[in-house]
Simulated assay, not measured.
Amino acid sequence: MKKTLFAAGLALTMLTACAPQQKKEALTMSGLNPAKFETTIDGTKQVHLYTLKNKAGMEVCITNFGGRIVSIMVPDKNGDFKDVVLGFDSIADYQNVPSDFGAIIGRYANRIALGKITIDGDTIQLPTNNYGHCLHGGPQGWQYAVYDATQPDSTTLQLAMVSPDGDMNFPGNVTVNVTYKLTEDNGIDIDYNATTDKKTVINMTNHSYFNLNANPSAATMDGILYVAADSITPVDSTFMTTGDMMAVEGTPFDFRTATPLTDRINASDNEQIKFGRGIDHNFVLTTKGDDTKPAAKLVSPVTGISLTVYTNEPGIQVYTGNFLDGTVTGKRGTVYPQRAAVCLETQHYPDTPNKPQWPTAYLEPGQKYHSHCIFKFGVEK
């Protein structure tokens, strides 16, 4: 009897040893499991997580669902790598929890007044999803699109899609190409291109929520901010630009000298701060489209991590996470409180289609839309 039991046990051990082992999915440096980003949308559109790495050890993870930056691992002042953007651990959360975390925004980043644009004398009504205005392309903007993705090398991701005529009621079949390039000097170079077969409006940006303290469970308003801007485009109580320019001198919006955000966002006696519930404003850049000049710079006094933004765009939206409210749980089970991040969105000005005095956002057949942004990371000790 003992021999029989021994033989049975030995056979079971051999079968277990010989059985094919389930492959364990390798995690990214930021702790993401790529398997949690594998899905099919609308029966045919494949979603994946793509990882970019450079020789300096920096890692950027991006999903082709909305072209979203999911994580950014950069070294702090001690040489330890930290994740400095908000996001989710799985594609299910990106699908089910409304957010703009890390996304490519289009067709029109920011707001269009009352959702109305006029093209060649015809008024077009867009969907309204924010205080009676069209925000970030409407409720199903490009942050929810699935891009075709190609990764030609370890530092490059190419994304492409076609937004059909009538998408969120915007006219024109628009062909979009976005390239993410992780540079050897720790920059994320984002190149946006688009063409159309019918006159339309285009204004693209990336909506990453940066927490350079690498602690998204707490507000990050101790960050020191510089913005190359002499003025902002002020807003009304519905966050819509008035069409005016307001000089920043003598106001909480003067970041021409690097200043801690905490010194400015609680200026409750300022009407614009009240309207924005903090800072949520377009800054009129003095860089004049020169993407070799710093448009903005944010530095964490905790980690020493710095982020410098370069762009060919005329404006940048500075948003201090005022609408984060502790109801969203992100990566690693972290609850995101108010002001847990800062967004630096390079752009044409809000509502430019209805403000003819501002740089045009119209795109016609035969023209090419091109926008360029670099998020360059460094360390200040």
Results as ranks from 00 to 15, higher is better:
residue 140 Q to R: 15
residue 169 N to C: 04
residue 202 I to G: 11
residue 369 Y to R: 00
residue 237 S to G: 01
residue 126 L to I: 07
residue 44 T to C: 00
residue 190 I to M: 08
residue 273 I to W: 07
residue 22 Q to M: 12
residue 75 P to T: 13
residue 273 I to A: 03
residue 292 T to K: 12
residue 129 N to V: 06
residue 363 L to I: 06
residue 258 A to I: 01
residue 183 T to P: 11
residue 262 T to R: 14
residue 103 A to L: 08
residue 23 K to I: 14
residue 10 L to Y: 02
residue 212 L to M: 05
residue 3 K to D: 14
residue 6 F to K: 12
residue 328 V to F: 02
residue 277 R to Q: 15
residue 155 T to N: 12
residue 277 R to C: 07
residue 307 L to P: 08
residue 97 V to W: 07
residue 270 N to M: 04
residue 150 T to V: 14
residue 213 N to H: 10
residue 65 F to T: 01
residue 217 S to R: 03
residue 358 W to C: 00
residue 166 G to D: 07
residue 225 L to D: 04
residue 283 F to Q: 04
residue 194 A to M: 13
residue 351 D to G: 01
residue 271 E to S: 08
residue 6 F to V: 15
residue 299 V to Y: 05
residue 354 N to Y: 01
residue 259 T to Y: 06
residue 113 A to E: 13
residue 309 V to M: 11
residue 143 Q to S: 12
residue 215 N to R: 15
residue 193 N to K: 15
residue 243 G to V: 01
residue 283 F to N: 09
residue 49 L to M: 12
residue 3 K to H: 13
residue 326 G to P: 01
residue 194 A to L: 08
residue 230 D to P: 02
residue 347 Q to F: 12
residue 334 T to V: 15
residue 180 Y to W: 05
residue 87 G to Y: 11
residue 176 V to R: 06
residue 101 F to Y: 15
residue 240 M to F: 00
residue 242 T to L: 13
residue 93 D to L: 08
residue 44 T to M: 00
residue 127 P to S: 08
residue 245 M to C: 04
residue 224 I to Y: 04
residue 86 L to P: 13
residue 42 D to L: 03
residue 221 M to F: 13
residue 186 N to M: 14
residue 156 T to P: 09
residue 209 Y to S: 03
residue 141 G to Q: 04
residue 87 G to V: 07
residue 53 K to W: 13
residue 223 G to V: 05
residue 231 S to D: 09
residue 113 A to I: 03
residue 200 T to Y: 06
residue 322 N to T: 06
residue 31 G to I: 00
